[in-house]
Simulated assay, not measured.
Amino acid sequence: MTTDQPFRKTFPGVATGKKMFELLNPGADLPIEQRIDGTAYAGAWFEITQADYAFMLDILPPLFMRTGMFGMSEFKAGNVTSVFFGITIHGRRRWFHGFCDMSDRFAPDRMRAAIIAFEWHAFDSMTRAEKLEAIWILTPDDFKGTAEGGDAAASIPHQRDERAIIFDHGEHGTVTRPLDDLTDNEIADLLRPFTKGEQR
């Protein structure tokens, strides 16, 4: 499988410890076929700590290892495996994880270039789609869903196939909203704890 999915950042800030492992196992709400062939994962990346980078390097003999980059020998699904990067951006060393489709032998290099391009030009910015994906990943399972899976979206009859979340809307109390209908202000509020480097 060679995927044409774009590279996409899936977490704002640095994922540490437990959060990193949660992000290494995403997609439980996606179709089983996409999880089996790896399309649910390919192209996704996020920032990690140096300690977690070193920890993952020690788990198994790497599939490959180059300066500032190594791949896991245990594949996630299909041809997709975890690749870890150590990259210097604006004079500061940082560490990242990405899911690469290894049927494309240039995928790790293209992902590295995509990470550099994104982080070099946009320190704290993500596209709207990336922000929505991050909110979906960060929202606890009890506060998100679709009509098929119950929970949040079940109370929105006209949008029953769409992902929806339940969240505290301040003076309006708890509200249920389709993910794609969130306003820019709501997105900013939901991501604020993480963009400040806080962990839930």
Rank of each mutant, 00 (worst) to 15 (best):
D142I: 07
G98D: 12
G38R: 00
T127Y: 09
D58S: 15
F70H: 05
F84I: 05
T88I: 13
D151A: 11
N185P: 01
D141V: 01
D180L: 11
L60C: 07
A153P: 06
A129P: 00
T3M: 03
G197W: 13
T10A: 07
A44T: 04
P140N: 03
L182Q: 00
S73L: 03
A51H: 00
T195D: 15
R192S: 15
I116P: 05
F85L: 11
L191I: 06
A107C: 06
W95N: 03
N185L: 14
D104C: 07
S155I: 11
F96Q: 00
P62S: 06
T183K: 07
I36L: 13
L24G: 12
M69H: 01
E186C: 03
L23I: 08
K196Q: 14
S155P: 08
I166Q: 10
R110C: 06
N79F: 13
E186Y: 01
G68D: 03
P140W: 02
I187D: 03
D37A: 12
D58P: 04
L23S: 09
M126G: 10
W45C: 05
T139L: 01
I165G: 04
S103H: 14
G71P: 00
M72K: 05
A44D: 10
L132P: 10
Q159I: 01
D168F: 10
G43I: 06
H158Y: 09
K9M: 13
W120T: 14
I36E: 10
M126S: 10
P61R: 11
E47V: 00
H90M: 10
R160P: 00
I156P: 08
I36N: 11
